[in-house]
Design a protein around this nucleic acid. Structure first.
Ligand SMILES: [Zn+2]
Ligand SMILES: [Zn+2]
Ligand SMILES: [Zn+2]
Ligand SMILES: [Zn+2]
Lengths: 130, 130
DNA sequence: AACGCTGTGTAATAATATAACATTTATAAG
DNA sequence: CTTATAAATGTTATATTATTACACAGCGTT
């Protein structure tokens, strides 16, 4: 069981903004939003983001340099993420697919790598944008 | 069948540098290397990179903002990539695993997304770094 | 020739992320 | 309570990654 982390003031502010958005937010857009709450510099945002990613409260969408809240209580450690991304409207959804996760978790290459994390991003068009 | 593209001068220069490296290169490190060949500005590099990615000659390692040559003749279209990344020495290897590729290609979510691309990155420690 | 398309060269700037330093707060040990 | 230690903060400056804007060149098509 993962120890329940107590978030600090800045971490709470940043997490709050991200959780209120259904879609990924960029660091500087978060910065803009939290200026009214006393966070003034990029580094303050990036430090909070780093921590939140580390404890699995949020995930980074690598191809978009953006951050989205994790809604899955199981994925408290940010080590196994799958996203679906619409290239037209940029809608992003985290995917929880047991079978696929299992395949990825069990994957072994032929070079003896010790895996502890993966990130998978699917791209395409959502229903609305087809 | 994909039309065989004829590369332009700048595209050839950039591809050449990337193919000579076994490991991913960053855009500005490529720029530094090609200055002696008459490429002076970031944009010239980024334009060549964009094209090379589009035709599948190279892939972008999203989590590293770096570019690596594709050695697989089959993956001429850059729409299905799997990488293994050592978090200690940063060694990157492209993975070609038929079974895993099949699973990813066949994956369907429950929202009616039309996928046309995916990118998967595994992270861990390589044999040397364990 | 006129057009559309792709690529080029150059300058300027935007967007993303980190380094360095001084200080403060939280936690734990003696 | 005091001391030690780790984690977080606040601030400034800077590094790194990527794009906008504009003028023009080459090439194939009509
Ligand atoms: Zn999650
Ligand atoms: Zn869409
Ligand atoms: Zn490839
Ligand atoms: Zn390694």
């Amino acid at each position: 069981m993962q120890k329940q982390e107590t978030l600090t003031k800045n971490q709470k502010i940043v997490l709050d903004i991200i959780e209120k958005s259904s879609q990924p937010l960029k660091a500087y857009s978060i910065l803009f939003d939290v200026k009214k709450k006393g966070i003034n510099a990029p580094l303050q945002v990036y430090r909070a983001l780093d921590k939140l990613v580390k404890i699995g409260k949020i995930h980074k969408i690598e191809s978009r340099n953006a951050f989205i809240a994790c809604k899955n209580s199981k994925c408290q450690i940010a080590n196994a993420t799958i996203f679906s991304i619409c290239e037209s409207c940029e809608d992003v959804t985290e995917i929880h697919d047991h079978k696929l996760s299992e395949h990825l978790r069990d994957f072994k290459d032929n070079k003896g790598m010790k895996y502890n994390k993966y990130n998978l991003e699917f791209f395409g068009l959502c229903k609305k944008c087809v």
